[in-house]
């Protein structure tokens, strides 16, 4: 009885261990000297501690702060425009009655199936013709309208009571007041869940920045890491992993802060 009760926990613990192993290995490599990088031991304390050297090299040989700042600018810009566009759209689809609503919603769901890679070429050509390669805008523009955000907010907004919206209309709220002040207010968990999804996706994105950015001073963290590994370190995996640790840390912190809301958001809106 008592053993069977713990089996699910054991399975989950094992799964979590497997998921965390690469991160652990990253952290471990970041504090090992080059000589120990290929040791297969999982023992957390290396024979000689090389954390200081690795982190110093990662932080000084490339403009790591610049990469981080670029990442922040790109992620914040994308998230802001995504929310500004997706929230009214989701509100209209969830709560307003107009002809073609079902078709529009079906289109949104269909658009979820289109991969970014399929659009890369036309977007690249368009940006190139507009002479906008190597700008923050080029990095952000393809992600300004997120159908995933529309879908997630739609699912969450749908459950907002219609009578409160009617009451608000009678009290003199405009549709925008209702959308931002009441409905989004009631869906804060969905907002933070989406923020985590969006920030993680675009902070870690390498594919698109690699296509539109060639200048080091505009590179977001993953692209910066790529420049770093090419230019400076060659096979210095310790420093490379120190750099990776530095750029992963903000995301992990961001998730830990929003964890409670994030989980409420995905369970509430039925998106997993």
């Amino acid at each position: 009885m008592s053993v069977t009760r713990y089996i699910p926990h054991m399975v989950l613990t094992l799964g979590a261990g497997i998921m965390l192993l690469p991160f652990y290995w990253m952290g471990l490599t970041a504090i090992r000297p080059p000589a120990e990088v290929f040791d297969l031991t999982l023992w957390p304390i290396p024979k000689t501690l090389a954390a200081a050297e690795n982190f110093t090299q990662a932080a000084t040989s490339v403009p790591m702060a610049r990469f981080m700042l670029n990442g922040v600018i790109v992620c914040a810009g994308i998230l802001l425009v995504q929310v500004v566009t997706a929230v009214p759209c989701a509100y209209a689809l969830a709560k307003l009655r107009f002809p073609g609503r079902r078709l529009l919603l079906a289109t949104v769901i269909a658009a979820l199936c289109v991969p970014m890679q399929a659009l890369a070429l036309p977007l690249f050509v368009g940006l190139a013709k507009a002479q906008m390669l190597n700008t923050y805008f080029a990095m952000m523009a393809p992600f300004f309208v997120s159908v995933f955000a529309i879908f997630l907010f739609h699912q969450s907004f749908r459950s907002y009571p219609d009578e409160i919206i009617d009451a608000a209309r009678m009290d003199g709220f405009s549709e925008m007041d209702i959308c931002w002040g009441l409905v989004l207010r009631g869906s804060l968990p969905a907002l933070s869940a989406f923020a985590v999804f969006s920030i993680v996706a675009h902070w870690n994105d390498l594919y698109w920045p690699m296509i539109v950015i060639t200048k080091t001073e505009l590179a977001p963290p993953p692209l910066g890491m790529l420049f770093f590994s090419d230019a400076e370190t060659g096979a210095n995996y310790g420093a490379l992993m120190a750099g990776a640790t530095l750029i992963t840390a903000p995301i992990v912190i961001c998730f830990l802060l929003a964890r409670k809301q994030f989980i409420a958001g995905i369970t509430m809106s039925g998106v997993k």
Partner: peptide
Amino acid sequence: MVFQSYALYPH
């Protein structure tokens, strides 16, 4: 208007 569910603003 007074609604069946009262429709108070929850926040």
